Simulated scan of single mutants.
Amino acid sequence: MIEIIDTNDSRAVRNKNNVLALYELMINTKISEEGTAKYVSPAYIQHNPLIADGSVALGKFFAQVTRERARARVVVHRIIAAGDYVWAHVNFLNLFNDDPNDTGIAGVDIYRMDVDGKAIEHWDTLQVVGDPQNSAPLIAPNIPRANPNGMF
């Protein structure tokens, strides 16, 4: 994992660590409601239209996903923290299927953290990773790649 952070900025270091811990509890260890209670503010504002506002709603959403998908996990490839903001470039695997060969969904999550180090606001952008033959399977399946670069 690549980390970009000013290690002299204790707030940024704490916020980065809290986002990593949130992913670990919420998805990888599948104790979503415990993770969101600890690392997400009750006043959490969600900009992803699939999930309601609030830490409870986020915890319930991922609790359902991880109950239904035993293989669900997240891999953080890059994380940047500055002050109250954390950006994470991640691969969400098996969130919507049980296929052991799932290539996942690439995501960039942006968190705004409050003074206590809890996520207070979140934005994301998501793209299906696809396979080597498809460049953008969600938008236009079976379009040949214009370059050999992967998502990560």
Rank of each mutant, 00 (worst) to 15 (best):
E3K: 15
E3G: 03
I4Q: 15
D6N: 14
D6S: 06
S10C: 00
V13T: 06
R14V: 00
N15W: 02
N15D: 02
K16H: 04
A21I: 01
E24L: 06
K30Q: 09
G35Q: 07
V40M: 14
P42L: 13
Y44N: 04
I45S: 09
N48E: 10
P49Q: 13
L50N: 15
L50Y: 14
A52N: 15
G54I: 09
V56F: 11
K60F: 07
Q64C: 06
Q64P: 00
V65Q: 10
T66Q: 04
E68P: 00
R69W: 02
A70L: 04
A70H: 06
A72Y: 06
R73S: 05
V76H: 09
V76L: 10
R78Q: 13
R78E: 12
A82G: 02
V90H: 03
L93R: 11
L95H: 14
F96I: 12
D98M: 04
D98V: 01
D102V: 04
T103R: 14
G104E: 10
G104K: 10
A106I: 05
G107I: 09
I110W: 14
I110L: 15
V115N: 10
V115T: 09
G117N: 05
A119R: 01
D124E: 14
V129F: 13
V129L: 09
G130Y: 08
G130M: 07
P132I: 06
P132C: 07
I143L: 15
I143P: 00
I143A: 10
P144N: 04
P144M: 05
A146G: 03
N149L: 14
N149G: 01
G150K: 09
M151R: 13
